[in-house]
Design a protein around this nucleic acid. Sequence first.
DNA 1: AGGGTAACCTGTATGC
DNA 2: TGCATACAGGTTACCC
Length: 286
Amino acid sequence: MPELPEVEVVRRGLHAAVTGGVVRSVEVRDERALKRHVGPALDFVDRLEGEVLGEARRRGKFLWVPMSGGAALVAHLGMSGQLLARPVGAVDERQLRVRIRLERGGADRELRFIDQRLFGSLAIDRLCVAGDDDVLPTQVAHIARDPLDPLFDEPAVIDRMRASTRGVKSVLLDQGIVSGVGNIYADEALWRARLHWARPAASISRAKVWELLGHVRDVFLDALAEGGTSFDALYVNVNGESGYFSRSLRAYGRAGEPCERCGTPIRREPFANRSSYRCPRCQRLR
DNA sequence: AGGGTAACCTGTATGC
DNA sequence: TGCATACAGGTTACCC
C-alpha cells in the first residue's frame, strides 16, 4: 500500500520520534514480521537491544534507521505495514507484531510495527557501499534512486526506460529502474501524461518519457503535501493520522466516474494480478 | 526478455 | 445469519 509519499511521511515522523533513542527492549510478537531478517528472531532482538538509533533514511519504499553499532534497522511496509510511535502502556493494536521500547531524554516510548497482511517486515541488516558511494543496507542495494532523490539521474533513467519493450507501467513499477512508484501513483502519473499503461516504453519519445517522470515527481509532491493517500486506517503516519490525497486521485479507484478532462467514464482493467485505471479516451494505445 | 501466475497474509465488501 | 467470492497500497520466485 504505502508508496513513496506515504513512506516519506513515515520517515519524517520517525526522525522526530525515535532519532537519538536507545533501544531498551524488543518484543517480537509474530516472527512472520521478520521475513526480511536473515536469522532467527532472537538474533534480531540481540542485535537491536542497546543500540542508539540514528536518523531515518529512505530509498524508494524501503526505510532504515542506522544504529550506533554500524548496522541498520530496516523496514518495508508492504501493503499494510505501519510504524507507530506510542507511549508505553498504550493499548496494543490488534495487529501489533513487534514492539521496540526506547528511552530518549529520560522518557520511555515505544516504536511499534503493526501489519495486517504481513507483507511488510523489519530486519537488522549491515550497511554496504553501493555503486555511487551510497551507504545502503545490503538488501536495499538493488533499489534505484527515486525521482525526489537529488542525485536522481534523469537522462540515464529515461535511457533505461526507453531501452525496454515492456509496457510503460510495468517499467514504472520496476524498482530497479525508478523506485517509489506503486499502483496508485503509476496510474495517476500515466493519467496526467495521457499514456496507456500497456504502451511499450520503447515506443514513447524521449520528451514524453521526460514529461512522464515530471508527472511522477509532481504527483509525489502533491501527495506528500496532503500527508499521503489513505483509503482507510491501513495507512497512517507515526502518530496514527491518515493522509488526504485520496480526494485528489484522478484515475486510481475511480472506475465509472467521469474523467476530469473529457468526461468519459474511467475504466478499470486487469493488470498483473491487480488493477489499472485509465481514461479510455485520453489514454489510448495508439 | 518479459508475460503470466502464484505465493506470502488478513480483512472487508458484496452477492446469494 | 452464513458462506463463497473478489479485491486491496508490494515483492519475489518460477514457468513458459
